[in-house]
Amino acid sequence: MAETAKRAKMEISDEVAIDIRQMNKWYGTFHVLRDINMTVNRGERIVICGPSGSGKSTLIRCINRLEEHQQGKIVVDGTELTSDLKNIDKVRSEVGMVFQHFNLFPHLTILENLTLAPIWVRKTPKREAEEVAMHFLGKVKIPEQAHKYPGQLSGGQQQRVAIARSLCMKPRIMLFDEPTSALDPEMIKEVLDTMIQLAEEGMTMICVTHEMGFAQAVANRVIFMDQGQIVEQNEPKEFFNNPKSDRTKLFLSQILGH
C-alpha cells in the first residue's frame, strides 16, 4: 500500500531528540504534570491526546520552556533546560512551535512575520531570509500572500503561515499545540496536509491534537494523557484497535463514538 510505503520512508534514528525524566509541574498547589517520563528519537512523529485539562499542552510547552517545570529533567537536543537563559534561547531557536490561535504578528506582513526571527535571532542577511521565507511559503502553497497582513488571510492560511514561520528557523523539532482546533472544518484538511508533508520529510514532530485520522496516518506513536499523567502509549494501530486502560477505552469511545 502507498501509505505503508510512505511510512517506511519516514525513518526513525536511534539519536535521542528529547529526553524527559521524572518531570513534575505545579500551577500553585495544583499538580498539573506528574512523573512524566518520555523519550523522543529523531524522526519520530508523536501524537498526544487526552481529555481537556489533562496537561497535554502544558507538557509540550515545557519542552520549549514556555512553561517552567519544577522537578525532574528535560533535555532537548543535548541541552538541558534550566533557568539559564542562554540554554533556553538555544533550545527555542532549535524547536519550532505552532499554536492553536496561530499567534501571527498582526502588525507585520506575512513576509516580515517569516523573516523576523531569522534576521534577528540567526542574523541571516535580509535578502537571504526573504528567499528562505518565499521557499517555505511556496511549500505551504501560499506564496502569493507574502505581502498581505495576517488579518487578510483565512484561518487555514494563517495557520500554514505560522507553520512556515517556524520552518524558516530551520528547526530540528516541531511542536504542534492543537493546530487545527480553532479552524473551520473545511480548513482543517489544508493544515493537516501541510503537517503530513512535513512528517514525510522526516521532521521530528510532537502534536497535541484530536485529529485521530492524522494520528493513524502519520504518527508512529500515540500518547494518551489523563490527569497530568501518561496513561498509555502505543503505536497507532494497537492504540486505536486494542486500547489497554479503561480511561483510554472511555476516551476513544467518546471521540470516535459518532
Binding site: 520549549n64 514556555l66 534561547d89 527555542r92 531557536s93 524547536v95 519550532g96 512551535m97 499554536f99 490561535h101 499567534n103 501571527l104 504578528f105 498582526p106 502588525h107 523576523l116 526571527a117 534577528w120 535571532v121 514561520r165 517556524s166 528557523m169
Partner: peptide, 30 residues
Amino acid sequence: LPRGQYEAADALGLTYWQAQQHIIMPQALK
C-alpha cells in the same frame, strides 16, 4: 496584547529586548 504574542516571540527564540522592539512595543504603542 494577547499573551500569544509574547509566547510566539519567545518560541521563535527572540530575546526580551528583541521581542519588545519588534513585536510588543509596535503593537502596544499603536
